[in-house]
Simulated scan of single mutants.
Amino acid sequence: MSLRGGFEQQAHCQLFRFTGQLDAYSDKQFGEFIASHRSAGQPLVVDLSHIDFIDSSGLGALVQLAKQCTADDQPFVVAGNPRVVQTVKLVRLEEFLHLQPDLKSALAHIAS
């Protein structure tokens, strides 16, 4: 299964939604999709709650995005599902990625 992305401009954030697999075959697609829609300033929410699989390449893509947002002083948060949360916690990146367990929590976190 490939990665599919969607973008939605909301009143208080830029929302990126992904489904499928975030892995070595799709990490470049992930980065390019976000780069093509992302604008500076407004907070960014990456919804991975419908991701079926994430590997080290996918985690690397998230780390690169986090570094870009930090360098641009752009707030960001990642929403996961139990599988994504477990993988991110395994490598102890939950704080660095501002990981939230679901989209509702992520939107509440970014709005506060």
Rank of each mutant, 00 (worst) to 15 (best):
T70D: 15
H12A: 02
I51L: 15
H37V: 10
F16K: 00
G80K: 07
F33R: 00
S49R: 04
F76L: 11
L48A: 12
F33A: 08
R4D: 13
A71H: 14
V77M: 08
G41N: 08
F33K: 02
V84A: 01
V77K: 09
A11E: 06
F30H: 05
D23Q: 07
V77A: 09
S39G: 11
Q86A: 08
K28P: 05
S36G: 15
V88G: 01
K67F: 13
I51Y: 07
R83Q: 02
S105G: 00
C13S: 05
G60C: 10
R92N: 13
Q100G: 06
P43H: 09
R92D: 15
N81P: 11
A111Y: 14
D47T: 05
G60W: 07
G5T: 06
E94K: 09
Q9C: 12
A40R: 10
L3R: 08
G6L: 05
I54Q: 03
I110R: 00
F18P: 00
H50E: 14
G31R: 10
Q42L: 09
R17M: 09
A79I: 06
S105A: 03
F30C: 10
F18C: 00
S56V: 08
D52G: 14
T19H: 12
A111G: 02
S49F: 02
S56Q: 07
L44V: 11
G5C: 13
D73E: 13
N81I: 07
G41K: 15
G5F: 12
E8N: 09
S2F: 15
S2R: 03
Q42F: 15
K89G: 06
E95H: 13
H109T: 00
E32R: 12
G60V: 08
Q14P: 15
T70A: 15
S57M: 10
E94H: 14
Q10S: 07
T70G: 14
F96Q: 13
S112Y: 10
V63K: 10
D72L: 12
V77L: 04
R38N: 10
I34Y: 03
K89M: 03
P43F: 02
D52F: 07
H98L: 11
H12Y: 01
V88H: 01
H12F: 04
A35L: 14
